[in-house]
């Protein structure tokens, strides 16, 4: 795809103390650096190498990503809800690009 686009699925509302599941997906070719082009030259590696999920600025879950993660990387993880606030999801690309997405969470 032309430009990487993140998708996030997380509840908009939750109870205090509840453990919620968060799913994320981003469009990315995850070029492994192991493949060769038609001329036999190695295609340079270009992957999403790091993912960070923060809530109200604090880290909840992070991943160091290797080229063995599939194209269009999918990550699912959890968070225990203590307070209302905002998620920030961050994907870091080998080429220096940083993709982010924010989402609010209400506590009932």
């Amino acid at each position: 795809m032309a430009k990487s686009k993140p998708r996030v699925k997380a509840p908009k509302k939750a109870d205090k103390g509840e453990v919620i599941a968060i799913k994320t997906l981003i469009s990315h070719k995850m070029e492994s650096g192991q493949r060769k082009d038609k001329k036999g030259d190695l295609i340079p590696r270009q992957i999403i190498n790091r993912f960070t999920a923060k809530f109200n600025g604090e880290s909840v879950f992070e991943v160091d990503i290797e080229p063995a993660i599939s194209a269009n990387p999918y990550l699912q993880f959890n968070m225990r809800v203590e307070e209302a606030g905002e998620f920030e999801f961050i994907w870091e690309d080998d080429d220096g690009s940083v993709y982010t997405k924010k989402q609010k969470l209400d506590v009932t």
Binding site: S59, F61, V63, D64, E66, A68, P73, E82
Partner: peptide, 21 residues
């Protein structure tokens, strides 16, 4: 290497899913 997941007490449960090659 495939991935390293970093959890915190905020994670609630130590569980993660992904897709690999």
């Amino acid at each position: 290497g495939v991935a390293t997941f970093h959890f915190s007490p905020k994670s609630g449960v130590a569980e993660a899913s992904t897709r690999m090659r």
